[in-house]
């Protein structure tokens, strides 16, 4: 399973400080640590506080690529920030993210096409996050169909069923899991499914436990990728064990070690 490292985000104090002071060593360390822990893609988000978010994104992308060659997920709500990051990516990037909102979707599909990037689509639109599974899947299908019409391969479309915090929307986890299952049968080859895992535990006391169990349940439903913290060793152990139980790789006594070695 692909774990997209979530730690390079201006919402975290150390990253915010690094952006502000142009301290590359902090970003280098956060990037290297996530890759060493098993991330094979890193999310890059300048956060809400950056003064010049285009410049901050450019600086982050360049700085990260000085120490690692894993592909990047360029994370912003603003197309100019996304484009600034995409232009500098050496590997095929993931655009994070579009929604089903028509105007936004058109802009971001074009951006993905222009930059040969993959596209992450949230199953929500201008009206918000639908409660029902069919309504979420319908938005997922709209995103997929729009991307396909533009000539983007279906497996370059990463659909996110939208994870809400269990503390504030306890009834939303089950439909999220159902949505994952439904999204996987939309096309052949199937679109990838992805989620912002840490959202599930917002405001909870034992966030790590909630993240871990939510990830495993999502894997059982067919989740392919998660934007998460790879430095949470117990989370990674749980993810690997779930992959084992789902028969994704061959067992051996040192399977945790073997999985990490095979990454």
């Amino acid at each position: 399973m692909l774990i997209i490292g979530e730690r390079i985000n201006g919402m975290f104090k150390n990253v915010r400080k690094a952006i502000k002071t142009k301290d590359k060593s902090i970003i280098h360390e956060v990037a290297k640590k996530q890759v060493a822990a098993g991330s094979r893609m890193l999310d890059v988000n300048v956060g809400p506080a950056a003064a010049d978010d285009v410049a901050a994104m450019q600086w982050l992308v360049e700085t990260i690529q000085e120490v690692t060659d894993v592909p990047l997920s360029i994370d912003s709500a603003k197309p100019p920030v996304l484009e600034a990051g995409l232009k500098l990516c050496k590997k095929k990037a993931l655009i994070n993210s579009t929604t089903g909102e028509q105007a936004k979707l058109e802009v971001l599909v074009k951006l993905a096409k222009d930059h040969n990037a993959a596209l992450l689509g949230l199953c929500m639109d201008e009206k918000g996050i639908p409660n029902s599974v069919p309504a979420r899947v319908e938005i997922g299908m709209k995103i997929l169909a729009t991307a396909m019409e533009a000539g983007i391969p279906t497996d370059d479309v990463h659909l996110d069923p939208v994870v809400l915090p269990v503390k504030f929307g306890q009834d939303q986890i089950k439909p999220m899991l159902e949505t994952i299952k439904e999204l996987k049968i939309l096309s052949d080859p199937a679109p990838k499914t992805v989620c912002g895992l840490s959202n599930s535990s917002q405001g909870c006391v034992d966030r790590h436990l909630v993240n871990r169990i939510c990830l495993v349940m999502s894997q059982a439903a067919g989740l392919d990728e998660a934007i998460a913290d790879p430095n949470d060793k117990e989370l990674m152990d749980a993810m690997i064990t779930a992959e084992l139980l789902l028969n994704k790789f061959i067992y051996c006594d040192s399977y945790l070690d073997a999985y990490r070695k095979a990454l």
Binding site: I250, Y251, C252, D253, S254, D257, A258, K261
Partner: peptide
């Protein structure tokens, strides 16, 4: 035994 096959490869790489 494919599980032992894999385990031995890990032991050798260790």
């Amino acid at each position: 035994d494919i599980n032992i096959c894999k385990q031995l490869n890990i032991l050798l790489s260790d």
